[in-house]
Amino acid sequence: MQDTDLPIFFAQQADPIAADQAVFGAAQPDDEGAFLVKWARIRANPDTLTRTIEADGGVAGYAHAPRLDRLVDELIFRLDADVVHNQ
């Protein structure tokens, strides 16, 4: 994951259709400040594995997995709606 991925992740989160379809979405998906705080916390945690998902040469979304006791307890991901619907 790179810093340049964050604006793409935010645009994906802020998309009204994607936000409406998210099972566990952000309370305010268009709040960029809250988004940046959340991602600073995720990226600062050395026990969280974070990856950018790429498709067709571009950023398609992300996956991150908090690890506790060397095990992955959950997998959190977001995929761009265009990628999901075009596969």
Score class of each variant (00 low, 15 high):
Met1Lys: 10
Met1Phe: 10
Asp3Val: 03
Thr4Asn: 13
Asp5Ala: 15
Asp5Met: 05
Asp5His: 13
Pro7Asp: 13
Pro7Glu: 14
Ile8Thr: 14
Ile8Asn: 06
Ile8Ala: 08
Phe10Lys: 07
Phe10Arg: 06
Phe10Pro: 04
Phe10Thr: 08
Ala11Arg: 13
Gln13Glu: 13
Gln13Ile: 06
Ala14Trp: 02
Ala14Phe: 03
Asp15Cys: 09
Ala18Lys: 01
Ala18His: 02
Ala19Gly: 03
Asp20Pro: 00
Asp20Trp: 01
Gln21Tyr: 04
Gln21Cys: 09
Val23Met: 13
Val23Gly: 06
Phe24Cys: 09
Gly25Asn: 06
Gly25His: 03
Ala26Glu: 08
Ala27Asp: 10
Ala27Leu: 11
Gln28Ala: 12
Gln28Thr: 13
Gln28Glu: 14
Gln28Cys: 02
Pro29Tyr: 08
Gly33Phe: 04
Phe35Gly: 02
Val37Cys: 08
Lys38Phe: 14
Trp39Ser: 10
Arg41Ala: 15
Arg41Phe: 04
Ile42Ala: 11
Ile42Cys: 09
Asn45Asp: 15
Pro46Thr: 14
Asp47Arg: 09
Asp47Lys: 09
Thr48Arg: 03
Thr48Ala: 06
Thr48Phe: 05
Arg51Ile: 08
Arg51Glu: 07
Arg51Trp: 13
Thr52Ser: 14
Ile53Arg: 00
Ile53Gln: 02
Ile53Asp: 04
Ile53Phe: 02
Asp56Lys: 06
Asp56His: 11
Gly57Val: 05
Val59Gln: 03
Gly61Pro: 02
Tyr62Arg: 06
Ala63Val: 15
Leu68Ile: 01
Leu68Tyr: 02
Asp69Asn: 13
Asp69His: 06
Arg70Ala: 09
Leu71Met: 09
Leu71His: 12
Val72Gln: 00
Asp73Leu: 00
Asp73Tyr: 00
Asp73Glu: 11
Glu74Gln: 01
Leu75Gly: 01
Leu75Ile: 12
Leu75Lys: 03
Ile76Leu: 09
Phe77Asp: 05
Phe77Glu: 07
Arg78Met: 14
Leu79Ser: 07
Asp80Leu: 01
Asp80Gln: 04
Asp82Ser: 12
Val84Trp: 07
Val84Gly: 01
Gln87Tyr: 08
Gln87Thr: 12
